[in-house]
Simulated scan of single mutants.
Amino acid sequence: MTDQSMKTAKFGLGAVVRHRIYPFRGIVFDVDPVFDNTEEWWLAIPEEMRPRKDQPFYHLLAENAESEYVAYVSEQNLVPDTSGEALRHAGIAEVFVQDASGIYRVRDRHAN
């Protein structure tokens, strides 16, 4: 039995994506099945561009030409990044390892 109100995330951990509108790309390190940020954050987005809350939202180790940062982006605003260009975000090595085929996999974490 499937619950149609819960969408399956299109992108998994380690997926390399880019924003549909803005010039940045990144790697997915966490996924929220629906919006899980503050109302203030959501309302700060211009109304004509504000995404629906009932879709997956992705936490990205993101980068643009000038900087590296963490971004929170709705699924409707992401597309796969097929450029093949290397990502430079300093946080990637802490979270992921890249295999011989170029796929990013979450590093094994050992409990402290």
Rank of each mutant, 00 (worst) to 15 (best):
M1L: 14
M1P: 07
M1K: 15
M1V: 13
Q4E: 12
M6H: 13
A9M: 08
K10E: 02
F11E: 00
G12S: 13
G14Y: 08
V16T: 10
V17N: 01
R20M: 07
F29N: 08
F29T: 00
V31Q: 06
V31F: 08
V31M: 06
E39S: 07
E39D: 11
E40K: 13
W41N: 13
W41C: 07
W42A: 01
L43A: 10
L43H: 09
I45S: 06
I45Q: 04
P46G: 01
E47A: 08
E48A: 04
P51M: 09
R52L: 15
K53M: 15
K53W: 11
Q55E: 14
F57V: 01
Y58E: 02
L61H: 05
A62D: 02
E63P: 02
E63F: 07
E66W: 14
E68P: 00
E68V: 08
V70W: 00
V70N: 00
Y72P: 00
V73W: 04
V73M: 03
V73E: 09
S74E: 01
S74V: 06
E75V: 01
D81R: 01
T82A: 03
S83L: 04
E85R: 04
A86H: 12
H89A: 02
E94C: 08
F96H: 01
Q98L: 04
Q98I: 01
A100M: 05
I103Q: 13
R105I: 03
R107W: 11
D108M: 10
D108A: 14
A111F: 12
